[in-house]
């Protein structure tokens, strides 16, 4: 019974969960690592599935939490500098490796340097297309705060982009 539920409700959202983890962790390897944990955790908590209106929101929440925890503990260990945000050498986002227009390439970089919370919100809204209500359910934030966070992220991305573009022109 549970196996069927798992197959019919969790497997179809695996790519979404992967994208969320990838945008948070910025490395395929780490995203896959997180997702293994997400799946095991979801399975572990199968007794609680009934409490959730849909498993998808629950799965997104678990993914989000694991990513934020992992990022936090990496930072505590001093794996990378918060302000400089030079990604540690072990992690190279797959988007940095493909052939892209310079402007898109810059924007990919800009996105990856947004604060964790902003990357999360942009991923949920602009990549996955969730409604504000759904995001509220997944993140536990209030709709208003979500709007503000998303607005800030969108504006910041473009500011950062222009800074880099101007700098490179000089």
């Amino acid at each position: 019974m549970e196996l069927q539920t798992f197959k019919s409700q969790v497997l179809p959202v695996k790519d979404k969960l992967f994208r969320i983890a990838l945008n948070m962790m910025r490395s395929v390897e780490e995203a896959e690592d997180i997702l293994q944990d997400v799946m095991v955790k979801l399975w572990d908590k199968r007794a609680q599935w009934g409490e959730y209106r849909n498993l998808e929101a629950f799965a997104v929440t678990i993914t989000k939490n694991l990513c934020l925890d992992r990022l936090k503990s990496k930072r505590m260990k001093g794996h990378f500098d918060i302000q400089e945000m030079e990604l540690d050498s072990g992690t190279v986002s797959p988007y940095q490796r493909i052939e892209l227009d310079d402007s898109v390439k810059t924007m990919v970089r800009v996105f990856e340097q947004l604060p964790d919370q902003q990357r999360l919100l942009i991923t949920l809204r602009d990549v996955e297309g969730y409604s504000y209500e759904e995001i509220a359910e997944q993140t536990g934030l209030e709709v208003n705060n979500i709007r503000v966070g998303i607005s800030r992220a969108r504006k910041k991305a473009k500011e950062d982009y222009l800074k880099i573009a101007n700098y490179e022109q000089q």
């Binding site: 988007y95 924007m107 996105f111 991305a157």
Partner: peptide
């Protein structure tokens, strides 16, 4: 509007990504 275009282009890129290494 080039930076806007770049923004949406990278979102598009992310939205198309799939978990290739997945094994049921």
């Amino acid at each position: 509007l080039k930076e806007e275009q770049a923004w949406f282009a990278q979102l598009d890129l992310r939205a198309k990504t799939e978990w290739e290494g997945f094994s049921e």
